[in-house]
Design a binder for these strands. Sequence first.
DNA 1: GACGACTATAGAACGTGTTCCAGTTTTGCC
DNA 2: GGCAAAACTGGAACACGTTCTATAGTCGTC
Lengths: 208, 208
Amino acid sequence: MAAASKPRATGTVALTTLAGEELGSAAQRDRRKRIIDATIALASKGGYDAVQMRAVADRADVALGTLYRYFPSKVHLLVSSLAAEFERAQDKMDRTTIPGENPYERVLFVLGRITRGLQRNPHLTEAMTRAFTFADASAGAEVDTVALLMERMFTKAMSDQEPTEEHKAIARVIGDVWLSNLVAWVTRRATATDVATRLELTVRLLLA
Amino acid sequence: MAAASKPRATGTVALTTLAGEELGSAAQRDRRKRIIDATIALASKGGYDAVQMRAVADRADVALGTLYRYFPSKVHLLVSSLAAEFERAQDKMDRTTIPGENPYERVLFVLGRITRGLQRNPHLTEAMTRAFTFADASAGAEVDTVALLMERMFTKAMSDQEPTEEHKAIARVIGDVWLSNLVAWVTRRATATDVATRLELTVRLLLA
DNA sequence: GACGACTATAGAACGTGTTCCAGTTTTGCC
DNA sequence: GGCAAAACTGGAACACGTTCTATAGTCGTC
């Protein structure tokens, strides 16, 4: 549900070209959904390289030009899809009670859970990660949306209260480390275990 | 990012990188240097997009095929150039006495210095950063080289001694945060000041 | 100083992201 | 319903990373 509700507390996020959810007709919302679904399907099967614009258009049953009207580049498309997936994941997380006595344990729980989720679909993760970090300034807004979602996820894990400045700073650091480790995992410089270990170590340095 | 560059399976050794120039003849070492110089010049002028393989070959006065013999892809080329630049910077750093009473101050000094250096050449930084994070597994070795150089730089900043496990972990976290902030800076989601502030904050959380 | 094996060169060719175009359909409005 | 504007379509065209081919140069070995 919350896919539609994007109640960014402070200042609405620039709606991402036509990619914003406030699209006019039902047909348009449907087209957009088909496009994102096609993107995720292709990315899940073959990663970044398999998300070919012609293939996406084909599979979503729209013309190539239409695809580009909705998403002005492959990176926009992938990052927007990432945002969609992220929101799905967060909705699920929001309906979960995060166990743990303290921020340290709770953050570890959230991290473990997301990380396992990503490892379950390596191709998709590869596609999303590479798009996210390859984005140039023109996709800044979309990237920022995702970055905010991520930060919010970690601050929420630490405490249900309005986050303190320190918690925000810590959340950002964790997010940064997480991203770097994803990049390392995608290039196979780090195994899943490496990633888990390093995240744990980081959280310990920051929160223990 | 275009065609598949995976099945170059022949048993040839990747002479394509490595700080150590095992390259045979003087002519070959010279060609390699011309290529890297051309890459850095083009990247400095126009960033990632301006580093076009035909343009690099032209400027380095080698044939396109030769360029590809030395560096099997644009990403390899850019990451190898990054490694070269990094070594230059580190040499300079090694000849400097890092001021500061404690690891905290010393790491901040090093970070500030590098960050200012990067900001002095935004296009080059953009090209390098994007190549580094966009790399796929086939460039894992090159990327790893750079990652190690980076880690070493921070551990050395913390102390001249053999680094402890904890210092290594901290160095890695700092490197991760640094990379993420570079990505944010490149997409213009963060200003130079933002980056400086966040790095400082991170170091404080870890070392103060 | 001739031979064979690499290596380099020029350029064509190919794949995929992106742009453009001419024609058609849908939408919003009277 | 009629009409202009906007959106969609199929397809051609273009740019740049990458690969391939045919030819020519270079270097080590006899």
